[in-house]
Design a protein around this nucleic acid. Structure first.
Ligand SMILES: [Mg+2]
Length: 579
DNA sequence: CATTGTTTACAAGCTT
DNA sequence: AAGCTTGTAAACAATG
């Protein structure tokens, strides 16, 4: 039921950034091109929030269009006369948003070499007068072989001279992979006339928050593993042939680290997620490439690079630390080479740290932006611009790392501090210099979990409280909508007898961890013997089904004070794994 | 003159 | 704490 809706919530800020909104708009167009005014319209049509303060956000939007390399101008064609040009997405920014979920962007999309020539490469097929190869093909970045990941994934099985029971692991991972590669991947993920990607009945695709969550984990996991295997793997790779070694299988080659590593929390969940992600990514990537069909003509003007960009470019050229992300490892391109240009010169940047920010981080910080100001003279820096800070009602797309559980909000930092596996970290420290990285990588994992959960809740709230203007004028409307809905996707079969199943899933070693004295950390024995950390994995499957409902239903678990994460984790992690 | 685009500055949330 | 990403405000240039 659409619920009373009414205005009250209609103006909530959508959890999408301008870049996301713009990308959504552009992608919704059949041509994948839109004029500025059309973009405005698209946004205003489906996000009530943006029907106000138009000057403000439209200015921001324009800024984004010009500033970000992912958006490029294309001259209008004769059939669409009008004021400005059309905007489109850069041919290679396809993966800018993980899994097509606009909830989060991976990294700022930067046009590679920043050289015209290089860019021209993309520009050509884009503009092509005669489109040599008709549509498809030749759009993807050449180096991104869609099958690379897949290949590596498939080939991993032959790489384990395991000292670990890989079979067992594989066994429990299998189902996840299958799920990950499910049919939804190929589905059109853009609602024809509603807010893109917001799940709705009949929409054969996992909820966006699930995808986003999975994405979060994926990166966190990559680091986590890399921190452990990184150096060894690197060495190994440098000497041995450039054969692709799947990071996961690489882990099994680690003699020393193995033992300790296996005792870290969430390891099995991590593994399955990582693999599922790889498999899924390969497919998604492939689809993205094939679906991209751009047919435009005319020239594309060169992009000029402003000072701000130059500065960024320069700064970027510093000594890069080898990155062992899964992506890099998969591509076999980790030591990104580096060196070069000790920039110096530019340093005068004295951004007055001013505020003593870092204030206490109260749970559930409300909005309340800075409002200080008032420093009287301030004549120093001449430019008096930016005066009415008071009224600065900017809204941010950032969502924070609070996790609502029941009526309470928990800050990620608290969750982490109470779950940090100190002893295990120390154990690793004794055999590897990477302990610190392992720790921070794991911390990130938790952070992402919290952050992802936060987003999920945010979006859920938005979805529930906003009456979407379905079938809103201009666009195709109902008809399309209708055809969409009838086809119900199995919609979570409710079965799944609760968390039970897990037991064996949860791998080895947890018990033993607990042995570590200090570690016991109370934790009340709530679930008692039940190994805690993996709890998440286990119920995941079940939770997966009714997921949405889950979050706010507080009752069931009264969290025993200490078991913050346990309680929290249950929701985010399980939902994530669902993807 | 109103839009459409570019750029520079800054503040503040988030990540490393 | 340094560095990166977003959201805003503004000054201007270019167009129609
Ligand atoms: Mg641009």
């Amino acid at each position: 039921m659409p619920r009373p809706g009414r205005d009250s919530y209609g103006d909530q800020k959508p959890p999408y950034s301008y870049i996301a909104l713009t990308a959504m708009a552009i992608q919704s167009s059949p041509d994948k091109m839109m004029s500025l005014s059309e973009i405005y319209k698209y946004i205003m049509d489906r996000f009530p929030f943006y029907r106000k303060n138009t000057q403000r956000w439209q200015n921001s939007l324009r800024h984004n269009l010009s500033f970000n390399d992912c958006f490029m101008k294309v001259p209008r064609r004769a059939d669409r006369p009008g004021k400005g040009s059309l905007w489109t997405l850069h041919p290679t920014c396809g993966q800018m948003f993980e899994n097509g979920s606009f909830l989060r962007r991976r990294k700022r999309f930067k046009v590679a070499g920043c050289d015209e020539e290089h860019d021209a490469e993309f520009t050509r097929p884009f503009v092509s007068e005669d489109s040599p190869h008709q549509g498809i093909r030749r759009y993807g970045p050449a180096h991104v072989s869609p099958s690379a990941a897949e290949h590596a994934f498939l080939g991993m099985s032959k790489h384990h001279h395991a000292m670990i029971d890989t079979n067992k692991i594989a066994a429990m991972i299998q189902p996840n992979i299958m799920a990950a590669a499910g049919p939804w991947i190929a589905q059109q993920s853009h609602s024809p006339n509603g807010v893109p990607f917001l799940p709705r009945p009949g929409f054969a695709m996992p909820p966006p928050h699930a995808l986003a969550a999975s994405a979060y984990f994926r990166s966190a996991i990559a680091e986590y593993q890399a921190a452990l295997a990184g150096s060894i793997l690197a060495k190994h790779r440098q000497q041995v042939s450039p054969t692709q070694v799947h990071p996961i299988s690489a882990l099994t080659m680690l003699p020393a680290a193995n033992a300790s590593m296996m005792t870290l929390p969430h390891l099995s969940a991590i593994k399955s997620l990582a693999q599922a992600s790889e498999a899924r990514d390969a497919i998604v990537k492939h689809n993205l490439l094939n679906n991209r069909r751009l047919n435009m003509q005319h020239e594309v003007q060169d992009l000029t690079i402003g000072k701000r960009r130059e500065k960024e470019e320069d700064k970027k050229m510093k000594k890069s630390t080898v990155s062992f992300s899964i992506d890099n490892i998969m591509k076999g391109s980790f030591s990104k080479e580096a060196d070069s240009t000790q920039k110096d010169t530019c340093h005068g940047s004295n951004n007055t740290p001013s505020s003593e920010s870092t204030s206490p981080r109260k749970n559930y910080a409300t909005e309340k932006r800075s409002k200080k100001r008032s420093l009287s003279p301030d004549s120093t820096t001449s430019t008096p611009k930016r005066m009415n800070m008071e009224e600065d009602r900017r809204h941010s797309a950032f969502s924070g790392t609070n996790v609502m559980h029941g009526e309470q909000a928990f800050d990620f930092r608290d969750i982490w501090s109470q779950n940090k596996p100190t002893n295990q970290i120390n154990e690793i420290a004794s055999i590897s210099p990477d302990a610190k990285q392992v720790s921070s990588a794991l911390e990130n994992l938790y952070r992402y979990a919290a952050h992802a959960c936060n987003r999920m809740q945010l979006e859920k709230s938005y979805r529930e409280n906003t009456t979407l203007p379905i079938s809103h004028s201009s666009f195709s409307s109902t008809s399309t909508m209708e055809e969409c809905s009838p086809k119900p996707f199995p919609s979570s079969p409710k079965e799944q007898p609760t968390s039970s199943s897990s037991e064996d899933d949860s791998p080895m070693s947890y018990r033993r961890i607990n042995s570590d004295e200090k570690r016991k950390r109370t934790r009340g024995m709530d679930s008692s013997g039940k190994d805690n950390p993996m709890a998440s994995t286990s119920d995941s499957e079940s939770a997966n089904s009714r997921e949405t409902e889950h979050y706010y239903q507080t009752k069931s678990r009264s969290l025993p004070e200490n078991s913050l994460f346990k309680a929290e984790t249950t929701s985010p992690v399980s939902t994530m794994i669902a993807a």
